Computed example of a mutant assay.
Amino acid sequence: MSTPLQPVITKAGLAAIWRADNTGVAAEITHVVLGTAGYTPRTDQKSLQAQVAKYPIAGGERLSSTQIHLTAVADGERAFWVREVGFLLSDGTLLAVWSHPTEALTYKPADADLLLAYDVSLAALPADSVTINSIPGGLNLTLAAPLAAQASALIAEQLRGLQQQDQIVDQAARQRIAGEQIANLMLRMKAAEKRQNEDRDGLLSAAVSNAAGLIALQTLVVQHIHGA
């Protein structure tokens, strides 16, 4: 996946483009440079503010007359946040620079190769005034293992995310089932309580009836005794 960039074209880079045009050739982008400073780029820049590394262009293609696609591989032992990116011409001129005051572009881990892929907009330059000069063989087979490892790590991270999502969905389903069981239990408890109340009312009615019958019987016995 490529990162779209709209870098600031430097005055020095624009002058180099004009010099190349006067000779009837296009200027060549040969390297990408990375740095750790975050800021708003300026047209008078001639270098990055905190350059850390420089890598040759591994491959690229022209997407349109004013947009190119570049790839490179960032290797080495150092780990750092990439907050500024520059593109160098074959004579070392800083053609364009991208940076942001607060947002990092990516992270270069220690002792690991990072694939850089950028879609660079050069709308401020004359059409077809820049070409890409990549290393012979582009992304050759010597890079297959580290790039495959990077891809595997990304896939593994995505898989972990999916597994966590599945666990969340499963937990939600368990909670829903538990809620339904609790609601059903509450209904059954209310029904049992209702039956108990009905049974109690029936017993009270029967007791009252029995008491009334007993009183009536006692009254008849008393009347019979007095009558005798």
Rank of each mutant, 00 (worst) to 15 (best):
S99Q: 09
G76S: 05
V85S: 04
R62E: 12
E84R: 04
T102H: 14
G60Y: 05
G92K: 07
G86A: 08
V82I: 15
T71M: 13
W81I: 00
D75Q: 13
L70T: 01
F87T: 00
E77I: 02
T106P: 06
L114R: 12
L94S: 07
R83T: 05
T106F: 10
L115T: 01
G92Q: 08
K108D: 04
L95F: 12
W98T: 05
T71C: 09
T71N: 10
S99H: 11
A74M: 14
T66W: 02
L89T: 08
E61I: 01
L115R: 09
G92F: 11
E84T: 06
L63S: 06
L63Y: 12
E103N: 07
V85Q: 03
H69F: 15
P109W: 12
S65T: 10
A117G: 06
K108M: 08
T71K: 14
H69C: 02
Y107V: 10
A96K: 01
L95D: 03
W81M: 00
L94P: 02
V97T: 12
L89D: 02
R78K: 14
E84N: 06
G86K: 02
L115G: 02
L70E: 01
A72G: 12
A72Q: 07
L63W: 09
T102R: 14
L95T: 04
L95N: 06
T71P: 00
D75H: 14
H100M: 01
L63E: 11
E103S: 06
V85T: 14
G92W: 13
T66F: 04
L115M: 11
V97Q: 06
L116N: 02
T93K: 08
R83D: 13
L105R: 06
L114E: 04
A79Y: 11
R78Q: 15
P101M: 09
V73A: 14
P101A: 02
A117N: 13
P109G: 08
S90R: 13
A74I: 04
D113T: 05
L94E: 05
L94F: 07
L114Y: 05
V73Y: 06
H100K: 05
L94H: 07
G76M: 06
A96Q: 04
S65K: 13
L114A: 03
S64Q: 09
T66S: 15
T71F: 09
V82E: 10
V73T: 12
S90H: 14
E103R: 13
S64K: 11
E61P: 00
L94T: 03
G60W: 01
E61A: 05
E77T: 12
S90L: 03
A110Y: 09
P109Q: 11
T66V: 15
D75F: 11
